[in-house]
Each structure stands twice: as structure tokens, then as C-alpha cells.
Nucleic acid binder design. Structure first.
Lengths: 228, 228
DNA sequence: AGTCTACATATTTCATGTAACATGTCAAGG
DNA sequence: CCTTGACATGTTACATGAAATATGTAGACT
């Protein structure tokens, strides 16, 4: 047999995709920014083919939007879009948590616990960046609880879109703490293997997020509302 | 202004995608069948570029599966996969129907009614092919009830995957009739604007489908279980 | 026979050429 | 002033070339 260590995917298309995805989620490529294939190909130092594939993948994931013969841009969501994404997330995550209440392993719960402890720290340190990261992890972990790869994948995709859609949403410390406490309530119900309670706790979480988003509409800016 | 009538997308990549998608859902390209880009490019009479894009789109939609450097094949789902897809569909469609109970327009309900009438006909005529078509339409319409494009899109994608996954599932007439009656129960609850009842009715529908699928495991064949 | 190597074939993957198309600028004409 | 249209620039969309890779087959060696 070959001593070949691992042999990664090593496809340039995958690498380009990973780079672009990270840049988008980090905000380095802001919503609305053009994803010009020749331009990116120059910046990344590869030909246009793998870049084109990467952009197509981003479009499929909902992180970019494309108009025929006009190219793709980093997805920019309006208020209406954000609300729809949240609604879909709620449906999927609540279902995941319901199933997870019986299917979750001790390890699953330990991971959730670990993430929440890290999240507590980010609040103490008023580290908004860090909070977002733990929030991402927590919600994606909720997807894994179902032990259903289809659900898990969709939860992950929508959480990323949500991250992009709510990017600029104002988050004061009080809101962050609220979110953390609601996360804890979900986890507590899961540890008690109480599916309905976990579902209710998560629904409350989403309800508050939606409300705070809508109220934030007061001090709004433009809402391009990309969906037609 | 231009008198240009409409100017379709007209992109070869989109056309190729539409053709392949149709062939897959019709069963002309059976699960597991290789989707060789040069081969398809020859058959469709276009170059490899648009075909490659079409195949990537199919992979993104879950109708094809790809392994790096080995190419894509028409998705072939095992029993486990089918159950997971059904679980995800249930989550999304139930959510859609819950929202739809209040949001559905008279037109939405009329469309559902129309599809169910057509479905009744397919049963009388023992037209399995036709039944599948109306089933597809009915469930996709359930997705539109939410008036949430994100949910609607996911419901549609999963219904297509489901169609592929359950392709060979035995369907005797009795089962078809059962499905039809359950569809009617959902519609009745929707017309009464009774969200919990509509949700329960749809859950029953899915529960029976899952059970009949699992019992069909007895007279089973191989179940490749593509997910790893 | 059974295993391994070399070759042949087909495909993926990346690269690049090119026509059609979109868009901004700018100057001429209403 | 405002519109029109030619031009310049950059991109998409499609086609095609070429290297790296996977896979099947036949023959050589144990």
C-alpha cells in the first residue's frame, strides 16, 4: 500500500471556493460586491475555470446571487429576505431540536455546552466578533443533533445566509446576553430530553430575533430586497 | 424601447440543465448512471462548458452526486437517505402549511383543489405515472402556501430528491387512494384556516409514507446508502 | 492460477481563445 | 439641457486545448 499521507481534495476550484466563502462571511467581500471571474482569477493566481466553479457553488449556497449575462455579486439581502431566511431557519432548527431531544448523544450535548461556555466569555469581554462565531457554531450544532445529514446541511447553509443577511444588524450587549440565555434554555431542555420544551425555547429565541430585527427597521437604511 | 419580445435566458447551460433534470426525474437517466461531461456534450451537441455547469447545478440540487476526480452520477439513494429526505420534507412542508393556513390566498387553495381533482382522476384510471405528477404538484404547492421563497425553494428541491429516492417504491392502488385522502384532509384543514389541524393531517401523511417505505424493506433490494 | 506491471482509453481538471453582450464615457445633434 | 449613438472597456458564455488522473485490459513474472 501507498504511504500517501492523505491526499487532500486539492482541487483549485475547492480552494477558491473556500477562500471566497471565508472572505464573504468575514465581510471582506461586502454584500453587493461584484464577483468578476477574470478579476478573481487574477487575484487568486489561477485560471478562470476553477474560479467560475467556485462562484457557481457560492450561488448554489445562497451566498452569491447571479443575473444572466451580468455576473454574480455577493448576496445582499433586504429586510424581507432576512425575515424569510429566519422563518426557514426556525422550521429546520426546531425540527432538528425536536429530533435531537431523543437522538442527541452525550457528546453532542457536551459540545453544545462547550460552545455556550465560550459564548459566555465573549459576552464578558464584549467581543461581538467572538459572539457571532459561537452563535454560528451553536446553531450549526443544533443541526447535527437530528443526526440527519439533509437537515444538518440545510441548517448550515441557512445559518450562513442568515449571518450575511443580519451582518449589519445592531447588536447591543443586552441583546447578546438575551441570546445567550435563550441558548441555555434550549440546551437545558435538551439535557432533560424534553422535546416540546426545547422546541418552545428555540421558537422564543427566533421570535425575539425577528422582533428585534423588525424594530431595528426604525433606524433603518435601504433595504434592496433582492428577491423579486 | 426595444420591441424585443421577451429574450429568454437562452443559455445553453440552462437548456442542458433543464434537459438533464427532466431525464433524471423521468427515470430515463437511472440512479447511478454516469454523467460524463464529454459524453453528454456529444449527445447534446454543445461544448463541454455548458454541460459542466449543468452537471454542477444538478449536484447542487441533490439530483446528482459527485466524487472528486471521478465525475458525477445520477443520485442513488438508499433507504436511510430516503428516510432522512422524508424527515426534512416533513419539517419544511409542515412549517409551510402552518404558515399557509393564514397566508394562503383563495387562488392558492383553488390551485390545490384543482390538482386534487386531477389526482382523483388518476386513481380512477389507475394511472400511476399521472398520480406521481399530481403528487409532485400538490406538495410543491404546499411550499408556495408559505409565501416564503426560501421555504418554497427548499420544498421543491427536496420533493424532487424524494421523487428520485422513492422511484422504485412499490405503490399499489390502495396506497395511492390513501395518499389522496390524506391530501384532501390537509386541504380541508387549510380551507378551514386551521393551522394545527393542517399540520397534524400532513404529519399523518408523512408518517404513513415512512411506514410503508420501511415495511417495503421486507421485499427489499440493495440499499447503497450513498451518504457516508 | 494469481499478482503485478505496462499500456490504452476515457475523463476530470485546469488553462486559454474568442464572439456576444453589457455598461460607461463623451461628443454630436435635437 | 437632454437625448442619441459611436467608441472603449470589461465581462459573460461557449468552445477547445492539454496535463493529470482514474480505470480497464493484456501480458509477464512468481
Amino acid at each position: 500500500m501507498k504511504p500517501r499521507v492523505k491526499l487532500q481534495s486539492e482541487r483549485l476550484a475547492d480552494k477558491a471556493y473556500a477562500i471566497l466563502r471565508t472572505q464573504i462571511l468575514k465581510g471582506e467581500l461586502p454584500p453587493g460586491h461584484a464577483l468578476s471571474v477574470p478579476e478573481l482569477s487574477r487575484q487568486l493566481g489561477v485560471s478562470r475555470s476553477p474560479v467560475r466553479e467556485a462562484v457557481l457553488q457560492l450561488v448554489a449556497d445562497g451566498l452569491a446571487q447571479e443575473e444572466a449575462r451580468k455576473g454574480a455579486v455577493v448576496a445582499h439581502f433586504g429586510l424581507e429576505d432576512a425575515l424569510q431566511i429566519l422563518e426557514a431557519r426556525e422550521a429546520l432548527e426546531v425540527a432538528s431540536v425536536r429530533l435531537g431531544a431523543t437522538r442527541a448523544t452525550a457528546k453532542d450535548l457536551a459540545l453544545l455546552n462547550h460552545v455556550l461556555q465560550a459564548q459566555a466569555k465573549t459576552i464578558q469581554e464584549a467581543d461581538l466578533e467572538g459572539y457571532q462565531a459561537t452563535d454560528l457554531k451553536f446553531h450549526k450544532l443544533l443541526g447535527t443533533l437530528s443526526h440527519n445529514l439533509v437537515l444538518e446541511r440545510m441548517v448550515g447553509l441557512l445559518k450562513d445566509q442568515s449571518h450575511l443577511a443580519l451582518e449589519s444588524a445592531a447588536h447591543d450587549l443586552a441583546q447578546l446576553e438575551r441570546g445567550y440565555l435563550e441558548h441555555q434554555a434550549v440546551l437545558a431542555a435538551l439535557e432533560a430530553r424534553n422535546a416540546p420544551q426545547a422546541a418552545r425555547a428555540l421558537q422564543k429565541h427566533f421570535k425575539r430575533i425577528r422582533e428585534s430585527l423588525e424594530s431595528w427597521l426604525a433606524s433603518d437604511q435601504t433595504q434592496p430586497s433582492t428577491s423579486k
